[in-house]
Amino acid sequence: MPISFEHVSYIYSKGTPYEYKALDDVCLDIEEGKMTAVIGQTGSGKSTLVQHLNALLLPETGTVKVLDRTITASEKPKRLKSLRGDVGLVFQFPEYQLFEETVLKDVAFGPKNFGASEEEAKKRALNALKLVGLGEEYCERSPLELSGGQKRRIAIAGILAMNPKVLVLDEPTAGLDPKGTESMMKLFHELNRGHGKTILIVTHDMEQVFRYCDRVIVMEDGKVRVHTDTETFFRNPAACQEMHILPPALIRMKELLKENGFEVPDDILSIDALADCIARQVKKHG
């Protein structure tokens, strides 16, 4: 198991009137090589959870194990740096972290911090920019003058250039247009399938979870409410509703069809298969 949480709790502003328990005795194993979605309502502890993965936050109690490293409350900051190279964390609205004069320099900033030579960092930056779909013509432009979507890509390239084994994304598509969202999700899918990266993605979009993710973690009041594979998770739409989660359109469509007397097998998970299935039944009844 590359990532596991053992009885992890985290409290914000401990010992003040603002004290707030964000994680409460979380036990969790995250599989290597999978794409896992973390969902849950605002304030359920999603962001706090993912910030433990590269030790930006240290657990108040309990231990986090990430790639053979064990993180506890008494961790020394020195040992954490190399971990941050292995677990790339992309924050919400990462475009706000851009600061260099040129796109290339900004993307190369991460690898240089982790000890890559100038040449090596540049090579990795070019590679990462290609991955996110930005050509060499952007390299010498100022990141601050580009559009929001392009800035986001550059910021993500900045993390990819560190070549992390685990990629953690906190709402990476928030505020992007549908086309931008689609190509962003395809990129993450490709990084997972093609490059074998373990991906953890915090999201509110159930269509994304349904289409791209293998596993689902539902957080609620600082606890893990559900941890299962996507298919099983959406097989029970009633349970989703109970957790205030609106299932994806296809699942809702299937429910409606079932209510109206159609026979819809559980293993139909694409719109085409569903259309075929309905067509057959309609024909049969003539």
Binding site: Q51, R84, G85, G88, F91, P94, Q97, F114, I159
Partner: peptide, 11 residues
């Protein structure tokens, strides 16, 4: 937030 984002990039 920015401190955390840059620390994640090895700052």
């Amino acid at each position: 937030r920015i401190i955390k984002a840059q620390e994640s990039r090895g700052v």
